[in-house]
Design a protein around this nucleic acid. Structure first.
Ligand SMILES: [Zn+2]
Ligand SMILES: [Zn+2]
Ligand SMILES: [Zn+2]
Ligand SMILES: [Zn+2]
Lengths: 154, 154
DNA sequence: TATCACTTGAGAGTGACTATCATTAAGGAT
DNA sequence: ATCCTTAATGATAGTCACTCTCAAGTGATA
């Protein structure tokens, strides 16, 4: 994701207005590696701008996604999360216990699709998802703590 | 997933009752490779048993999941889907256009996690998700047809 | 500082579940 | 075959993560 100045410029170029709401959301995404949901961005943003609406957060996130500055990731934790790390392709670790999503920056060279399938499906991206238990949940003991997500996904 | 007789026996052993509703859902899952959602199982099931409730479908699917006979898969298509292919580990192809999920039965040997991460996260499973366009959507032309899912996920 | 199209926030709506609970019925006992 | 107990079901309502609509507010340019 571009930095504040670049984002502002980018928005101006496209004729989008620079509002304090948008800037507030931009700021919270800068260097954010927590894969926040719309809701968590909203919670943080309201600490600085209590009038901000959830609707505007959703809208701004969607704008950034459509401009390629944010990647939506849905890993079965119950909400879509947003990833500002669009420059470096990477993979994700998902904690089965607390739902936390961490980055794995490594060139894992995802396997190619076997021949037989290649003609029936045109692959545009391959993601590798590691599911397991994060360090915090390992040491906190198995089943304590509040759950922050659904456990629907494998 | 076990076959009808085995499922019935398994349920009996655990003291679960064998109801026509459960049997109806079991039957629809046998050999089903479409990764159906609760809703689509419900639609099919009502053709044979119009009194069946959606609630019971959800309940029965959850029971099968907890018994390890069904794997819930949430790949960002808007609903959890259920996979009776629990015996053979495999990966998934997800169509960005229509949301269809297909199986890829191939031993892709997912990459190991790099050393540096291994101590901070205990991996219990690795899934590889191929996203792209399925054959049907390729030939149907780009943007025709109804969409059957959200497009939230990368 | 006036204009006006773009933005915003409030409120209602949707879809996918989940919880509650009175009624129904499976299945062992008689 | 009928009773009885208790699990299972379906109707209803509720929750959560969004999405839609639209009147009111406000950046940006002149
Ligand atoms: Zn955790
Ligand atoms: Zn990431
Ligand atoms: Zn398709
Ligand atoms: Zn599958």
């Amino acid at each position: 994701m571009k930095d504040m100045n670049e984002l502002v410029e980018m928005f101006r170029e496209r004729g989008y207005r620079i509002t304090p709401q948008r800037q507030c959301v931009f700021k919270l995404l800068q260097g954010n590696t927590s894969h926040p949901s719309a809701e968590s961005i909203y919670r943080e943003a309201r600490k600085e701008m209590s009038s901000l609406s959830l609707q505007t957060v959703y809208r701004t996130l969607a704008e950034l996604v459509s401009l390629g500055e944010l990647i939506p990731v849905d890993l079965g934790t119950g909400t879509v999360r947003f990833d500002p790390s669009v420059e470096v392709p990477h993979h994700h670790l998902v904690c089965r216990s607390c739902g936390k999503v961490s980055d794995l920056f490594a060139d894992l060279r995802p396997p190619d699709m076997p021949e037989g399938y290649a003609q029936d499906f045109e692959v545009s991206s391959t993601e590798i998802v590691f599911r397991g238990i994060c360090k915090a949940c390992m040491t906190d003991g198995e089943d304590l703590g509040e759950r922050e997500h659904r456990f629907s996904s494998k």
